[in-house]
Design a protein around this nucleic acid. Structure first.
Lengths: 194, 194, 194, 194
DNA sequence: CATGAATGAGTCTTCATTCAT
DNA sequence: CATGAATGAAGACTCATTCAT
């Protein structure tokens, strides 16, 4: 109600919608979060949401567009590097940072895979994952299947970290490093043909 | 249409509801599957579902009760064994089989974590996972964090396999073995304090 | 509220929905009639309407299916007769009766052509009209254009009658006969090649 | 995109709104055309529409005011002439031209009668029609009812022409003449007391 | 063992309209 | 002359659930 609050808010409504939406989507899931809820928490009407976004899905998509850009850049960068172990290590390290920075988004994805599956955005995210896998994994048919599994496991473990990181005990940063270390280990073994 | 079809169905309606429900839940997600849909596919009325189950959640719960019993048994068995590497290897092997047999259920869980979170059933499943982790992981505070991560990664990778197993190429059974091998590897390293 | 009222209503809800819907559609137009309104007038909930009909359009369609059957029969009958003036006269006469019996429906159509245009039902009704025209009109390319216009005019005038019949003065039955007479006159002239 | 395009548009926005609105109203119906749609097609904002017109209905009304003036003039002129057949013929002829020139408007009216009914504009248009009818029809109580019907039919047929004129085959101008001829015929018969 | 009929609460979405700038 | 931002009311539709029969 404070006019200062109202004043401050001018012009950043779009951003605020995205923030609140992501928060709620991550907390309760996409389907179980209603636009009414988002609107209420923002103290605007549902119709205001529709001024800024065409559909509910559009809100989600816009969040992804912003937050997954770093991944796209990483993929491009990775594609240009020589496929050395060093490169892979760097990719995982950067990926770990990206994951941490956009943690709620990745937690959301982790927990709403069923929803993601029939969103256009979900499909395109899956594509990105596959591209990352390819870079880590060389598409060499002689690569043993276990090596492929290790690469996939590395990525998957990092994602899963989000889920476990919320489980209380232990310093989050320390955890993150442990996860990264294991992931690098896995990819290293794969790189060495194991 | 054949009266034999109808005849055969007598009495096993409860089971049929569970089967169809799991199929649809796994395919489309829990929230996006309506009771109307389930009823239609079974060619009964929605009210009939309520004759067999008290609520929608109850259907899901009943499916879990049936399909997660093997895990409970595994946990009990695991708890009684000496915590040797051999035991852990056996646990992972049996777990892999359980996962394969009840693949749709685990695919469902994997993709509907947000939903699981606020179902009683979900909570209790998570507990089971933690118990499994404990067995793999000794609760020794001197265990390095990376070892804990490796154990978690092993379990998580096996679950994730469901997701990747659907991706076409390669013999599923071969894939399953590769995943199991990597998981055992991870736990072995953890067991050795890495 | 009277339990008699409720009792009586059992089982005929579907019919009652159609009746009230047609009444309101004719009175206010299709778009301007909301399901809430229909439900309220029936003292049931909106959801009840959806138990009996899949969509709003479905309600309208079902009304048409019932009320336009006589026209289909007329077309079939007309198609089997020799294309004499006598036949045409009979068609117009029967058509006039059909129009009178289902007056609200035809009034609705007359006044909601824009709506009809993008309903499947509308399209199929238009087809029926064209078939009637063909019967009245022989598809002979040598027929002068004015003759074609006269046939169309005959049909159109009868439809328009609905609109004018509501205008107060004069006995409705007398009006109807006058309209029919003019229509027959028009078709007669057309039949004679004028 | 060209700044010339923008430049040219200066000042005639009001007119452009009317044009686009009529186009869309005729194409989709009044209720199914939203101000958003109109604004989008004009590449202005909805608020801009409100700068030029007070309400949605106001847009429609303004279109009518412009396009029905010729009818008013025709009525005035007709009222001053002697009620000879010659006059009536002239009225129909001019009316046919008016109809052709403002075809989209009349098509709109034809197809949106339900909407017209509760617009002030609609009422006043109906009045005009009745005035025209009176002129064609003398208000003589001894006039047989069929004569009245014929006059009404003449007018109605001309309106209906719009609807049929869109149906492809045949030269539109030729059709128009045929329709006019039939209309004159009808009024002639009425004039002769038939 | 099951259905037919219905409900209440809620979903996403669209609309005409307003007003400060 | 026009826009950006928002609102209140309403719309069609869906869902889990209930209960008399």
């Amino acid at each position: 109600m404070s006019s200062t609050g109202r004043q401050r808010r001018r012009g950043d409504t779009r951003q605020r919608i995205q923030d609140v939406a992501l928060e709620l989507f991550a907390e309760q899931g996409y389907e179980k979060t209603s636009l009414r809820e988002i609107a209420e928490r923002l103290e605007v009407t549902k119709a205001a949401l529709y001024y800024h976004f065409k559909t509910k899905e559009d809100i989600l998509t816009s969040i992804f567009d912003d937050l997954t850009r770093p991944i796209d850049e990483l993929i491009v960068w990775g594609g240009e590097q020589p496929r050395t172990l060093e490169t892979k290590r760097a990719i995982l390290t950067r990926y770990s940072e990206i994951l941490t920075e956009a943690a709620p988004l990745f937690r959301f994805m982790q927990e709403n895979q069923a929803t993601m599956r029939d969103l256009k955005t979900g499909e395109s995210f899956k594509d990105r994952m596959l591209q990352l896998l390819e870079i880590l994994n060389h598409d060499d048919p002689s690569t043993p299947m276990t090596a492929q599994v290790r690469c996939f496991s590395a990525l998957f473990t990092m994602h899963g970290g989000m889920f476990v990181l919320k489980g209380a005990d232990g310093d989050p940063e320390e955890k993150r490093k442990a996860i990264l270390e294991v992931a690098i280990d896995l990819v290293t073994q794969a790189h060495n043909g194991v």
